[in-house]
Structure formats: C-alpha cells, structure tokens
C-alpha cells in the first residue's frame, strides 16, 4: 500500500516524444489569468532553480505581464551565460496527481527558449526518490510522505504570512506558527 507516495510520472521528451533512460521529463501544469498551461519539464537535480521558458507557445501571451514583475533573479547556464529570471506567482501548480499548490512563485526566462527545468528549489521541499525498477532498464521518481510535506509548507506559509509559496524563501521559515 502506497501511503503518502506520489509519482512524478515520466513523460515523453517534449521535443521528440521519445523516452530515454538518461532523461526524465514530467508534466506540470499551472494557471495564469485563469488559463491552464501544460508544460513538460525536465527533472534536473543539477538545476538550482525551477525555470520555465517564456518562448513556450502556451506562455507567449503572458510574456508581457510576466516580464513586468518586480521579482527578478539571475542564474547561469553551464557555459556561464547569464539568464534573466522573472518571478511570477501562478495558481494551481500541479506537480503530480496528488500534489497541487494553490499559489507558488515560479521563475520564467526568455533566455532558455521554450524549455522548462524542474530544479532543486522545488524538489528539495519534498522527500523525493528515484527508484530503479527491479530487472528493468528504467526507474521512477517518487515523492514520499507528501501529506506531511504539504502540511509543513502550509504551516511555514502561515508563519510567513504570505498567500503564496516562494520555493527559495519558504525553507528558511520556522515551521511553528
């Protein structure tokens, strides 16, 4: 019996629709201005931040409003190229079937094209695990004890008195109200 375990289902590569053992993509979705956009993000434990590319066809219509955000950041790709990040609060962020965050700040950037990376800022909020299936050539990412993690996030949010989750700041908040 899977008690409190939620699967980050492996999705096909968003560019080729192929499945490779070496890459792990998963589908996330969120709402901006009451419109739901589905994005296939690469799970990247080497990425410090979760960043969504503003050239994704579903996001171009929101580019102006996102780039007007006063929440800004800077990151770098592997070649050292600077990436401008815009923080924007989205609604109903669906990470898995069981994990939906009603309001969370995500970073967006036009410097990564239409790609999307699910990074350690969000992953490390949870007890996540890669389990290789026995006698198979593939594995699955799981989030364990997600109920506890969601309760913890809610408590920290109340303590910080914000109505959204900031994946960078939330971990530094005391979990006692």
């Amino acid at each position: 019996m899977d008690t409190g375990r939620s699967e980050l289902e492996k999705a096909a590569n968003p560019a080729t629709k192929a499945f490779n053992r070496e890459s792990y993509f998963t589908k996330i979705s969120f709402d901006i201005s009451n419109k739901t956009v589905k994005i296939t993000a690469k799970i990247d434990t080497g990425a410090t931040y979760t960043v969504i590319g503003l050239e994704h066809k579903g996001l171009i219509r929101f580019k102006d409003q996102i780039q007007k955000s006063s929440m800004r950041g800077i990151a770098y790709d592997a070649s050292g190229t600077e990436l401008k990040l815009y923080g924007y609060v989205v609604e109903n962020f669906r990470l898995t079937d069981e994990i939906i965050l009603d309001k969370i700040k995500l970073f967006f950037s036009e410097d990564i094209g239409s790609k999307a990376l699910l990074g350690m800022d969000i992953l490390s909020l949870f007890d996540f695990q890669y389990l290789k299936e026995k006698r198979q050539n593939y594995g699955t990412f799981w989030i364990n004890n997600y109920d506890e993690a969601l309760k913890d996030l809610q408590a920290r949010r109340l303590n910080k008195d914000t109505d959204y989750i900031d994946p960078i700041l939330i971990a530094d908040v005391e979990d006692r109200v």
Binding site: N13, K17, D77, L83
Partner: peptide
C-alpha cells in the same frame, strides 16, 4: 518536433 532536442545538457546555476 525538434530532433535536436534528443540530447541536450540543461542545467541552471545560481
């Protein structure tokens, strides 16, 4: 469809 998307190195550093 983008065949170049098969093998990419994607990561972000702070």
């Amino acid at each position: 469809y983008d065949p170049k998307g098969e093998c990419t190195i994607d990561t972000i550093y702070a």
